[in-house]
Amino acid sequence: KCTICLSMLEDGEDVRRLPCMHLFHQLCVDQWLAMSKKCPICR
């Protein structure tokens, strides 16, 4: 589950894993990281 948009991560979707190993939709986390340089879970 992407904790930014709260939707399930589905096969075939573009996802991004951060160095902390948390996984998000690529678009969601890219937009998040443009505003904050910290993982939305770890922050």
Score class of each variant (00 low, 15 high):
residue 1 K to D: 07
residue 1 K to R: 07
residue 2 C to P: 03
residue 2 C to R: 01
residue 2 C to D: 05
residue 2 C to T: 01
residue 2 C to Y: 01
residue 3 T to E: 06
residue 4 I to D: 05
residue 4 I to N: 05
residue 4 I to P: 02
residue 5 C to D: 00
residue 5 C to S: 01
residue 5 C to R: 00
residue 6 L to Y: 06
residue 6 L to A: 13
residue 6 L to D: 15
residue 6 L to H: 14
residue 7 S to M: 12
residue 7 S to W: 02
residue 8 M to K: 13
residue 8 M to E: 12
residue 8 M to G: 13
residue 9 L to E: 01
residue 9 L to T: 04
residue 9 L to P: 03
residue 10 E to C: 05
residue 10 E to T: 14
residue 11 D to E: 12
residue 11 D to L: 03
residue 11 D to A: 06
residue 11 D to K: 06
residue 12 G to T: 11
residue 13 E to Q: 10
residue 13 E to N: 14
residue 14 D to P: 09
residue 14 D to Y: 02
residue 15 V to W: 08
residue 15 V to F: 11
residue 15 V to E: 07
residue 15 V to T: 11
residue 15 V to S: 08
residue 17 R to H: 07
residue 17 R to W: 06
residue 18 L to A: 03
residue 19 P to M: 02
residue 19 P to Q: 06
residue 19 P to V: 02
residue 20 C to V: 00
residue 20 C to R: 01
residue 20 C to L: 00
residue 21 M to Q: 14
residue 21 M to E: 14
residue 21 M to T: 11
residue 22 H to Y: 00
residue 23 L to C: 07
residue 24 F to D: 04
residue 24 F to R: 04
residue 24 F to I: 06
residue 25 H to M: 00
residue 25 H to C: 04
residue 25 H to W: 00
residue 26 Q to I: 03
residue 26 Q to K: 13
residue 26 Q to T: 12
residue 26 Q to W: 05
residue 27 L to F: 08
residue 27 L to Q: 14
residue 28 C to I: 01
residue 28 C to L: 00
residue 28 C to G: 01
residue 29 V to N: 04
residue 29 V to K: 04
residue 29 V to A: 12
residue 30 D to M: 06
residue 30 D to T: 10
residue 30 D to P: 05
residue 30 D to S: 09
residue 30 D to A: 10
residue 31 Q to M: 07
residue 32 W to Y: 07
residue 32 W to Q: 13
residue 32 W to R: 09
residue 33 L to W: 08
residue 33 L to H: 08
residue 33 L to S: 10
residue 33 L to C: 10
residue 33 L to E: 11
residue 34 A to I: 09
residue 34 A to G: 09
residue 34 A to Q: 09
residue 35 M to I: 05
residue 36 S to P: 04
residue 36 S to M: 07
residue 37 K to E: 14
residue 37 K to V: 07
residue 37 K to S: 10
residue 38 K to C: 13
residue 38 K to M: 11
residue 38 K to N: 10
residue 39 C to D: 05
residue 39 C to Q: 02
residue 40 P to T: 03
residue 40 P to I: 06
residue 41 I to A: 13
residue 41 I to T: 13
residue 42 C to D: 05
residue 42 C to F: 02
residue 42 C to P: 04
residue 43 R to H: 15
residue 43 R to S: 15
residue 43 R to K: 15
